[in-house]
Design a protein around this nucleic acid. Structure first.
Length: 255
DNA sequence: ATGGCTTGAGTGTCAAGA
């Protein structure tokens, strides 16, 4: 079973890249973030023509998450239950006995800002919800744009980013607490090339200089981590014309 | 040089991203 996550930064703009990527890699599930569209503008038909059923939790202009699967997802749920939020950041569903949680974590803008406070509150709500969700679904994967670089290894210039947004200690502690729920960072189950990132700034030739961060992740519950055979970042779509600023992260499970 | 690009909104220029 192949699962993947990709922040597409507008599905409308990136649809050709997404369809090409699905055709090439044939994942069992692809989680999308920043679709930036309401459900009524969502390209269900085009994706079905490519062999994928989609469920979407969308809104105008910002955010929006979707779960693409071959045969459709079961028990689909949107948002974090009990957490009042206008922003559409979470969609979950079950595929082949695996509970997939697709999440677009808040960016936080700047440490100490109102958006940062929202990010930390959102992270606390996610953690609280996942405690129960992992009990309910022992085979659980949390995929998405976490907007957290968990370690200095995940940062092109750790000194410049120290205590900055995406790298601050409270954010990294929140990531650590997700691991303490029994989840494992699929990427770190394997030897990886140095300076592997999943996002590069559009500005200042970020991709060319590999000035990036690893902020897109796949966390696996213990039974899934035990059968994970491979995980990595696919940089190829970042090299295309008019790319998303994020690259897909892919994991293979022997299921 | 707290900029640089890209997107959506909407038609001038700004918010937001990370």
């Amino acid at each position: 079973m192949k699962i993947a996550t990709w922040n597409v930064n507008s599905l409308k703009v990136r649809l050709p890249h997404v369809i090409d990527w699905l055709n090439t890699h044939q994942p069992d599930a692809l989680c999308l973030q920043e679709t930036k569209t309401e459900d009524k503008g969502f390209p269900y038909t085009e994706l079905e023509a490519a062999g994928y059923r989609a469920v979407h939790n969308g809104q105008k202009t910002y955010n929006g998450v979707a779960l693409l699967t071959r045969g459709g997802a079961e028990n689909v749920q949107t948002d974090i239950p009990g957490f009042a939020d206008e922003q559409k950041r979470v969609i979950s569903g079950t595929v082949g006995g695996v509970r997939l949680v697709c999440a677009y974590f808040p960016n936080g803008q700047a440490v100490g800002s109102d958006k940062y406070a929202y990010k930390l509150a959102w992270l606390a709500a996610l953690e609280q919800w996942l405690v129960e969700e992992i009990q309910r679904y022992p085979h659980l994967a949390l995929l998405g744009d976490y907007n957290i670089a968990p370690d200095d290894r995940d940062v092109h210039d750790p000194a410049a980013w120290r205590d900055q947004i995406l790298c601050s200690t409270p954010e990294r502690e929140a990531f650590r607490r997700l691991l303490e729920l029994g989840l494992e960072d699929a990427f770190r189950l394997f030897d990886q090339p140095e300076k592997t990132f999943s996002w590069w700034d559009y500005r200042a030739a970020g991709f060319r200089r590999n000035a990036g961060l690893r902020i897109d992740h796949i966390l696996l519950s213990a039974p899934l981590a035990a059968v994970c055979t491979e995980c990595g970042v696919d940089k190829a779509p970042r090299k295309l014309e008019r790319p998303s600023d994020h690259a897909p992260v892919v994991a293979d499970l022997a299921l």
